[in-house]
Protein backbone atom coordinates (compact mmCIF):
# COMPACT_ATOMS: atom_id res chain seq x y z
CA UNK A 1 0.00 0.00 0.00
CA UNK A 2 1.28 3.46 0.82
CA UNK A 3 0.79 6.71 -0.92
CA UNK A 4 1.81 7.22 -4.50
CA UNK A 5 4.39 9.93 -5.01
CA UNK A 6 2.87 13.42 -4.54
CA UNK A 7 -0.60 12.00 -4.48
CA UNK A 8 -1.87 14.15 -1.59
CA UNK A 9 -0.69 17.56 -2.75
CA UNK A 10 0.74 18.20 -6.15
CA UNK A 11 2.73 21.32 -5.23
CA UNK A 12 4.50 19.85 -2.20
CA UNK A 13 8.12 21.04 -2.38
CA UNK A 14 9.89 17.71 -1.99
CA UNK A 15 9.44 14.02 -2.44
CA UNK A 16 7.14 11.52 -0.73
CA UNK A 17 8.57 8.01 -1.06
CA UNK A 18 6.21 5.12 -0.28
CA UNK A 19 7.79 3.12 2.54
CA UNK A 20 5.28 0.31 2.70
CA UNK A 21 3.10 -0.70 5.64
CA UNK A 22 1.53 2.77 5.66
CA UNK A 23 4.76 4.50 6.62
CA UNK A 24 6.07 6.92 4.04
CA UNK A 25 9.30 8.87 3.81
CA UNK A 26 9.27 12.57 3.09
CA UNK A 27 12.31 14.31 1.68
CA UNK A 28 12.44 18.11 1.71
CA UNK A 29 14.18 21.02 3.43
CA UNK A 30 12.82 23.11 6.29
CA UNK A 31 13.16 26.27 4.23
CA UNK A 32 11.13 24.81 1.43
CA UNK A 33 8.35 23.44 3.56
CA UNK A 34 8.07 26.53 5.76
CA UNK A 35 8.05 28.87 2.76
CA UNK A 36 5.47 26.65 1.12
CA UNK A 37 3.23 27.12 4.13
CA UNK A 38 3.87 30.84 4.49
CA UNK A 39 3.35 31.63 0.82
CA UNK A 40 0.03 29.85 0.84
CA UNK A 41 -1.41 31.60 3.88
CA UNK A 42 -0.80 35.29 3.27
CA UNK A 43 -3.35 37.39 5.05
CA UNK A 44 -3.60 40.92 3.78
CA UNK A 45 -4.49 44.07 5.64
CA UNK A 46 -7.54 46.13 4.79
CA UNK A 47 -5.83 49.19 3.38
CA UNK A 48 -7.43 51.11 0.54
CA UNK A 49 -7.02 54.85 0.13
CA UNK A 50 -8.76 55.38 -3.21
CA UNK A 51 -10.14 53.75 -6.36
CA UNK A 52 -7.60 50.87 -6.47
CA UNK A 53 -9.34 49.62 -3.32
CA UNK A 54 -12.45 48.93 -5.41
CA UNK A 55 -10.40 46.68 -7.71
CA UNK A 56 -8.79 45.04 -4.66
CA UNK A 57 -12.26 44.27 -3.25
CA UNK A 58 -13.23 42.86 -6.61
CA UNK A 59 -10.10 40.67 -6.55
CA UNK A 60 -11.27 39.29 -3.22
CA UNK A 61 -14.89 38.88 -4.28
CA UNK A 62 -16.51 35.85 -5.87
CA UNK A 63 -15.50 36.29 -9.51
CA UNK A 64 -11.73 36.47 -8.95
CA UNK A 65 -11.49 35.32 -5.33
CA UNK A 66 -7.89 35.51 -4.12
CA UNK A 67 -8.71 32.94 -1.43
CA UNK A 68 -8.12 30.32 -4.14
CA UNK A 69 -4.42 31.20 -4.08
CA UNK A 70 -3.95 31.28 -0.32
CA UNK A 71 -4.83 34.89 0.47
CA UNK A 72 -7.57 33.45 2.61
CA UNK A 73 -8.96 36.50 4.38
CA UNK A 74 -8.19 40.17 4.79
CA UNK A 75 -7.64 41.35 8.34
CA UNK A 76 -8.68 44.68 9.84
CA UNK A 77 -5.71 44.70 12.22
CA UNK A 78 -2.04 44.97 11.22
CA UNK A 79 -1.18 42.59 14.08
CA UNK A 80 -2.87 39.75 12.20
CA UNK A 81 -1.69 40.62 8.69
CA UNK A 82 1.29 39.36 6.70
CA UNK A 83 0.78 41.56 3.68
CA UNK A 84 -0.22 45.14 3.01
CA UNK A 85 -1.59 45.98 -0.43
CA UNK A 86 -1.25 49.74 -0.85
CA UNK A 87 -4.36 50.32 -2.94
CA UNK A 88 -4.47 54.02 -3.65
CA UNK A 89 -2.89 57.43 -3.33
CA UNK A 90 -0.67 58.12 -0.32
CA UNK A 91 -0.81 61.75 0.76
CA UNK A 92 1.56 63.47 3.14
CA UNK A 93 -0.97 63.22 5.96
CA UNK A 94 -1.43 59.47 5.35
CA UNK A 95 2.29 58.63 5.12
CA UNK A 96 2.97 58.45 8.90
CA UNK A 97 -0.16 56.34 9.33
CA UNK A 98 0.99 53.91 6.64
CA UNK A 99 4.41 53.70 8.27
CA UNK A 100 2.87 53.02 11.67
CA UNK A 101 0.65 50.27 10.25
CA UNK A 102 3.68 48.69 8.60
CA UNK A 103 5.68 48.89 11.84
CA UNK A 104 2.83 47.25 13.74
CA UNK A 105 2.73 44.21 11.48
CA UNK A 106 4.48 41.08 12.68
CA UNK A 107 7.49 39.89 10.71
CA UNK A 108 7.88 38.56 8.12
CA UNK A 109 5.79 41.15 6.32
CA UNK A 110 5.35 42.04 2.69
CA UNK A 111 4.18 45.03 0.69
CA UNK A 112 2.51 45.26 -2.70
CA UNK A 113 2.25 48.72 -4.28
CA UNK A 114 -0.90 48.59 -6.38
CA UNK A 115 -1.48 51.12 -9.12
CA UNK A 116 0.22 54.24 -10.43
CA UNK A 117 -0.34 56.36 -7.31
CA UNK A 118 1.29 53.89 -4.96
CA UNK A 119 4.19 53.34 -7.36
CA UNK A 120 5.11 56.93 -8.21
CA UNK A 121 2.27 59.31 -7.40
CA UNK A 122 0.92 58.57 -10.87
CA UNK A 123 -1.49 61.24 -12.13
CA UNK A 124 -0.58 63.36 -9.10
CA UNK A 125 3.16 63.39 -9.74
CA UNK A 126 3.26 66.96 -11.08
CA UNK A 127 2.03 70.18 -9.50
CA UNK A 128 0.65 68.79 -6.29
CA UNK A 129 1.46 69.82 -2.76
CA UNK A 130 -0.05 66.84 -0.98
CA UNK A 131 0.80 63.53 -2.65
CA UNK A 132 3.76 61.28 -1.78
CA UNK A 133 5.58 60.41 -5.01
CA UNK A 134 5.55 56.68 -4.45
CA UNK A 135 4.83 54.62 -1.35
CA UNK A 136 8.44 53.34 -1.46
CA UNK A 137 9.44 56.67 0.06
CA UNK A 138 7.67 55.52 3.22
CA UNK A 139 8.04 51.73 3.43
CA UNK A 140 9.96 49.13 1.42
CA UNK A 141 7.90 47.60 -1.39
CA UNK A 142 8.23 44.00 -2.65
CA UNK A 143 6.01 43.96 -5.73
CA UNK A 144 4.82 46.79 -7.95
CA UNK A 145 1.57 46.26 -9.88
CA UNK A 146 1.18 48.91 -12.59
CA UNK A 147 -2.19 50.14 -13.83
CA UNK A 148 -4.65 52.91 -13.14
CA UNK A 149 -6.24 51.02 -11.55
CA UNK A 150 -4.87 47.53 -12.32
CA UNK A 151 -7.43 44.92 -13.26
CA UNK A 152 -8.02 42.13 -10.72
CA UNK A 153 -6.05 39.74 -12.96
CA UNK A 154 -3.05 42.06 -12.73
CA UNK A 155 -3.26 42.21 -8.95
CA UNK A 156 -3.55 38.41 -8.77
CA UNK A 157 -0.45 38.14 -10.96
CA UNK A 158 1.39 40.48 -8.60
CA UNK A 159 0.26 38.53 -5.56
CA UNK A 160 1.45 35.26 -7.11
CA UNK A 161 4.79 36.88 -7.94
CA UNK A 162 5.07 37.73 -4.26
CA UNK A 163 4.38 34.08 -3.40
CA UNK A 164 7.19 33.07 -5.72
CA UNK A 165 9.50 35.53 -4.01
CA UNK A 166 8.60 34.11 -0.60
CA UNK A 167 9.44 30.58 -1.82
CA UNK A 168 13.02 31.68 -2.53
CA UNK A 169 13.66 32.95 1.00
CA UNK A 170 15.96 31.25 3.47
CA UNK A 171 15.87 31.14 7.27
CA UNK A 172 19.65 31.16 7.47
CA UNK A 173 20.10 34.30 5.38
CA UNK A 174 17.23 36.38 6.65
CA UNK A 175 16.79 39.79 5.10
CA UNK A 176 14.61 42.38 6.77
CA UNK A 177 13.78 45.01 4.16
CA UNK A 178 13.27 47.77 6.74
CA UNK A 179 16.93 47.45 7.91
CA UNK A 180 18.75 50.45 6.53
CA UNK A 181 15.68 51.64 4.66
CA UNK A 182 15.57 55.02 6.39
CA UNK A 183 19.27 55.49 5.72
CA UNK A 184 18.68 54.89 2.02
CA UNK A 185 20.70 51.66 1.89
Amino acid sequence: MGIEKNELVNDFPGQIIPGGNGGNITITTLDKVINWGRSNSLWSLYFGTSCCAIEMMQTGAARHDYSRFGFEVARPSPRQADLIIIAGTIVNKMAPVLRRLYDQMAEPKYVIAMGACAISGGPFYYNTYSVVKGADHVIPVDVYVPGCPPRPEALLEGMMMLQEKIRTESMKHKVNPIDGFDQGL
Binding site: N92, Y125, Y126, N127, T128, Y129, S130, K133
Partner: peptide
Protein backbone atom coordinates in the same frame (compact mmCIF):
# COMPACT_ATOMS: atom_id res chain seq x y z
CA UNK B 1 -2.67 78.55 0.69
CA UNK B 2 -2.11 75.66 -1.74
CA UNK B 3 -4.96 76.17 -4.22
CA UNK B 4 -3.94 79.70 -5.15
CA UNK B 5 -2.55 79.96 -8.68
CA UNK B 6 0.65 81.63 -7.47
CA UNK B 7 1.33 79.05 -4.75
CA UNK B 8 4.89 77.72 -4.66
CA UNK B 9 6.13 74.77 -2.63
CA UNK B 10 9.64 73.75 -3.53
CA UNK B 11 9.71 70.82 -1.13
CA UNK B 12 6.60 68.89 -2.16
CA UNK B 13 5.81 70.04 -5.67
CA UNK B 14 7.33 68.85 -8.95
CA UNK B 15 6.50 71.64 -11.38
CA UNK B 16 5.60 70.86 -14.97
Amino acid sequence: YPLRKDYVDEVNMVIK
